[in-house]
Structures are given as C-alpha cells and as structure tokens.
Design a protein around this nucleic acid. Sequence first.
DNA 1: CGCTTCATTGACGACGTTCAAGACATGTGG
DNA 2: CCACATGTCTTGAACGTCGTCAATGAAGCG
Lengths: 244, 244
Amino acid sequence: MNTPNFTAGKCSDCPIRHRAVCARCNADELVELDAIKYYRTYEAGQTVIWSGDKMGFVGSVVSGVATLTQTMEDGRTQMVGLLLPSDFVGRPGRDGAAYNVVATTDVVMCCFRKKPFEELMSKTPHIAHRLLEMTLDELDAAREWMLVLGRKTAREKIASLLSIIARRNTTPDNDSVSTVFDLPLTREAMADYLGLTLETVSRQVSALKRDGVIQLQGKRHVTVPDMTRLMEEAGDDTDGGFLI
Amino acid sequence: MNTPNFTAGKCSDCPIRHRAVCARCNADELVELDAIKYYRTYEAGQTVIWSGDKMGFVGSVVSGVATLTQTMEDGRTQMVGLLLPSDFVGRPGRDGAAYNVVATTDVVMCCFRKKPFEELMSKTPHIAHRLLEMTLDELDAAREWMLVLGRKTAREKIASLLSIIARRNTTPDNDSVSTVFDLPLTREAMADYLGLTLETVSRQVSALKRDGVIQLQGKRHVTVPDMTRLMEEAGDDTDGGFLI
DNA sequence: CGCTTCATTGACGACGTTCAAGACATGTGG
DNA sequence: CCACATGTCTTGAACGTCGTCAATGAAGCG
C-alpha cells in the first residue's frame, strides 16, 4: 500500500517526474529517455546490485526504499546511502558498482541502459545539470552524516536518524502538531547506518521512548509529539538554518 | 618551499591545469575563465571561509592543504573534507557556505567570481562535466570515509588516514620500496578527521611506530617501510581492486 | 504448533575518552 | 646564555559508553 502501482510507463504520470534526474528534461528529451528506459521491480530483501559487478544500467528509485552499503572482509558493514524515491543509482562513466544496493522494501526502479544514457547525457545539458545538482546534494548529505558518525553519541545518532526520516517521509497527520511515520529500516539496518550495534540501537530507541521523546505503535510505527525536542536530542540547531 | 611560487597567472603554466575544474576547457574557454579569475593566498591557520557566510567566489586549491569542517554548538568538530591541490571549493548555485574552510599550510587559491562562473558554466558543458566528475569522486571519497568513521577501530583509522595521505602526497623516494611523506595535519586535525581525540591519535601513532608499521623523524615526517603492511592495518583490501 | 525472523533486555568487559602531568621544541626577553 | 612562556605532542590512570555474548520475548507463517 505504500508501494503505489507504477509500472505503466508514461513519464508524464511518473510520481518522481519533477525530482529525479529527468526533472529538467523537456518533452523531446523525455521521448529519448523513454526509448532507453524500462522498469524493474525488486522484492524486499533482494539485492539490486552487488559491489564489484558490472552494471548495465543506471536509474532512479520510483517507489520503495533501498540501501547503499560497504562491507569489509570480516563482515563489518556500513551503510553509506539511503535511497528514497527519485534518488539516482549508478555512476555514469564507470563500469563496476562500488557498493551493494539492497531493497529494504519492495522497490520499483526506472532503469536506463547505461551506454545510451551516457550518450544522451553528453548531448543534452539538462540531464547532466540535474545530475550535478543531485550529486552535490548527496555530497552534502554524506558530509552531514560524517558528523553524525564521527562525533555524536548513540542517543544523538538515533535521534538524528529519526529526524531525517521524519523530514523526508512524513505522512501528513490529521491531529495537528505531532509527526507520524513508519521506519523503513530494521534495527540492524539502522545500526549499519549509524555505526552502532543493533543492541545499542534497540536500547536507545527504548530510552527515547521511555523519556517521551517518541512513541511507538508496534516496532516500526513512530509518533513524534514534538519535533523540536527530537532535534534537540539530535544535537542539531533547532532553528533550521537553511541554505539556498 | 613546498609552496611553489605560483601567483603569476598564466593558465598554461598552472600546476593544476590538468586536474582542476578547468581541466577539460579549450583555449577559448580558458580565456573566459581568465577574465574572471584572481589569486588569493592564505597563511597557515587562517580561515578561508566561515560556515554560513555569503560566498562571493568559488575556486580551486592551487597549492597547500586546507580542511573542510563542521562544528556543533558545543564545540565538537568533524572534518568532512581534506582539500589538496586541484580540489574545488564552493558550490555553484548556493550563496552561503555550508562548512568552515581553514588553511592548514600556506595556501594559494585560484578564485572565480561566483556569478560569472555560474553563467560560464551554463554556457559551456566542459566545466559542468568536469565538476560533475569531481563531485562524484568526492562523493565516493566521503562514502569511503563513512566506513572508516562508522566501523573501524582507532588503530585502523590512523592506518587508513596515513595510507590515504601516502597515496596522494608521496615524494618519489630515492631508496626504492619505502614510502615517505610529511603529515600536513596536526594531531588535533587528524583527530577531527577520524572522529577521535588527539590523545587517542597520539597513542595509536606511537603504537604503529612501536610495531614497526611506520617510522617517524620528528613528529610529522613519516616513513612507511611496507605499504602493504600499512594497508592491512587499515583493514583495506590489499589487492587494490580498482574501478574505472 | 514449531519454526524463523526481528527485537528487547541483562551482565560483563574492552576500547576510547577524560583529566592530568610532563616532555619537547621554538621563540622572547633579560 | 639562561629563564620563561607557548604550542604541540606524549604518556598515565580512572572512568564510562558502547560492544559482546546470551537469554528471552513478540510477531508472522507454514
């Protein structure tokens, strides 16, 4: 139900039309993209791409959530990206995948065959410009996350993750102030995101609940009565100083 | 002496001509860039840009080393980027700086006035393409660093930092195998990079020295007798599996 | 019902931080 | 030349956060 059925294919009806890599394209360019695109679906838990494998395509997440992870030989793993609808997957100009991509919910991807996509990119500036913009945003997000990983306590890390998900994933709430959302991640995935163990994640989530910062219905459904409080717990500036 | 005197201004003689944001530009485009560029020098320790300030320019590091840092209200700081010669500073399309930029050695910057640079970017694809490529590389580096911050031990972190600096900063060594370089960072800066305290950095550097992984002449001059050993200590794949 | 997966909770210990003292190098002034 | 100050780094001891290991609970499914 939070995976809307979009596998039809008309770009004009596409839910991510205005935010994805194709956002700036005009009608003509969309026709060209249309010719090299196809949809693929992945079930929750399925691996989309293995690190090191040759990639035949790049693409956008249309619906669902996927994760980007790195793994060391001994099995320690770190998530390095959370892919939400409209996020771009793959790197033009590179053959091999640098990370594992795993679907954490059912996922629909809009894929472009890589070679034609690269040619299209060099012909039309709109795609390249949008991709640059998106990459710069991701770089900012990665750097924000470096602060979380390097300097925040376990409690602050959890609060940071919750407020990020809340910001990108809120379902407009009927009863006013409080923010409500579903966690798209298991405790283990949260741990991999935050550089913690799943036990520590569980403990800190419980602690935030005990202290009234969040409420839980089941294990995944979260209510935040006071976002400002949550952001204070995250150690962030509460007065969101935004850059344009 | 490791700050070569380049403040003259002919792009053709520029030491970073082939790697910076201008790398792909042809002669005509260089002329246009030339018209909006100017050089600035900063002394070691000097702040180049304050986070939040309005930025009138973007630019490239020509020589020297600078750092990109984020700071929390209570003073905890995390380095999120290490700017070496040819690296790009600033974000086209954004007015305010998101990070502090501090020169750790004497630095020469090649600056472009922001507005004209943005106009030039939208006219010529070469600059935008090169910037996209560089941004993707930086994103990869940031993600690599997330693994270091989230999952590596203090000892592995130090070894990781040393091997990165060794890779980008090696002075070709007369006597064969061993790798020699100068650390451009204080212990405190290393700590800020690695999400550690300076005491822990000091202890782990001493430990690596005691165990023969590195040798020190003074506090900054490092000799690595066996790079493979160092990379093992870093927890990295020793067989550098490279992506193209 | 048993089986699996995901999550919670407790006890204990290791790793890294904190606090504190001291080493070492460089520079300044008497 | 020595006394003194300053900045950078090293080292030690005590502490605390988070990881490890293990048992238990809760929910979904054949």
